[in-house]
Design a binder for these strands. Sequence first.
DNA 1: TAACATTTACCTCTATAGCGGCAATATACA
DNA 2: TGTATATTGCCGCTATAGAGGTAAATGTTA
Lengths: 80, 80
Amino acid sequence: MAQSQQLAEVIRLHRKVARLSRVQLAELAGVGKTVIYNIEHGKESVQLDTLQKILNVLNIKIALTSPLMDDLQAPENEKS
Amino acid sequence: MAQSQQLAEVIRLHRKVARLSRVQLAELAGVGKTVIYNIEHGKESVQLDTLQKILNVLNIKIALTSPLMDDLQAPENEKS
DNA sequence: TAACATTTACCTCTATAGCGGCAATATACA
DNA sequence: TGTATATTGCCGCTATAGAGGTAAATGTTA
């Protein structure tokens, strides 16, 4: 998925639809505005947890899939 | 998805199934072994691109989903 | 058991992610 | 039009991700 440019566009699209400025999004996510700027400019070097905070605000979910798991990782809680 | 512990387990499970040591996986992914150690120990602060290199070797894919996109962001072809 | 091989744990150090600040640019309203 | 106001672009600095090294642990074979 999300090779730089694509992630950039996904973020930007969702941000735009949500009518948020970068600063607003950053504040809601609890991160700096720089990271949003960077992502939207195609920078892939983003911390996963930072990205998750942002995706969270935009109501975007990350799912891992593999032949091994197929889709049985849907729920996101259980075990540990 | 992947809240620390879960990501840790997904990685570890796939690595084990693939019969790879951390060092081997690290080399295949072109990253240091430290990051794999960290991930498997529940550290969420991992670079997205670094994580992708690892997931790539383990044949795990990341998908972004949202009400906006639903699942129209194509399974596993992706450009570039 | 010892001796060796493989894997994991943890340390130190360097490159850099991402923070806040401010300038530049865009938008809105009188 | 001018002047607030909001948004974006970019810079410098600091905390830290993650590289490699090595010790500890674990496994293997005689």
